[in-house]
């Protein structure tokens, strides 16, 4: 009888030990540091199989802001930035790649945050302090640089609110956290 018991043990006749599934590689897709706005580019227009940036057309014919009418070509340009409903709220009309503030001073494209700061004072202050926006690199200046994302790297200036995005996978309660399906 005892020998039978020993045999039962060796043959593992009872119990429900369920081995852990081997871990699936998901790659290192979340180690990338892209911001919420992706790509970072200006709005582009698609026409007969080509893509055009604004300046590519508008260096040839200037904008007439008085007409205030939407052309068919521009339906893909979403403009949802509060009261700013005209191009010249931010752009110099005859030279779109130069920014212009409310008083008419010119601001280079590379320093666009200065323009944003004209209206969004507290946010601009927080950004300069490094607490608005996402830094990368080093929190300790003596070790390396903290690279700040600029306003337009996260917010599209034409429609600054974050767009909804697909969330990464939910936790697997059944397999995760040590659970083995009893949950």
């Amino acid at each position: 009888m005892l020998a039978l018991l020993a045999l039962c043990f060796v043959l593992d006749l009872w119990g429900e030990v369920e081995p852990v599934q081997p871990g699936q590689s998901k790659g290192r897709q979340y180690s990338a540091n892209e911001t919420v706005r992706d790509p970072l580019l200006a709005p582009r227009l698609e026409k007969i199989g080509f893509e055009y940036g604004c300046v590519e057309c508008h260096r040839n014919f200037s904008l007439d802001n008085k007409r205030r009418q939407r052309l068919a070509e521009h339906t893909s340009i979403e403009l949802d930035h509060g009261a700013n409903s005209r191009c010249d709220n931010c752009h110099l009309l005859d030279k779109l790649d130069v920014l212009v503030d409310y008083e008419g001073s010119h601001i280079a494209f590379e320093e666009s945050e200065k323009l944003c700061g004209k209206c969004h004072g507290p946010k601009y202050r927080d950004w300069k302090e490094g607490v608005h926006g996402r830094p990368n690199g080093y929190w300790l200046a003596s070790r390396g640089e903290s690279v700040k994302a600029t306003c337009v790297q996260c917010h599209s200036p034409h429609s600054p609110a974050f767009k909804p995005m697909t969330p990464a996978p939910a936790p697997d309660e059944r397999r995760g956290s040590g659970g083995n399906g009893h949950g």
Binding site: Y30, T35, V36, V131, R134, W139, S142, R143, F162
Partner: peptide, 22 residues
Amino acid sequence: TREGRYPACLEVCPTGSRVFGN
């Protein structure tokens, strides 16, 4: 972080919701 870098959760946050430091 003990070598001066930011934690991984902060660096990946697409909306810059996290602030970290001394």
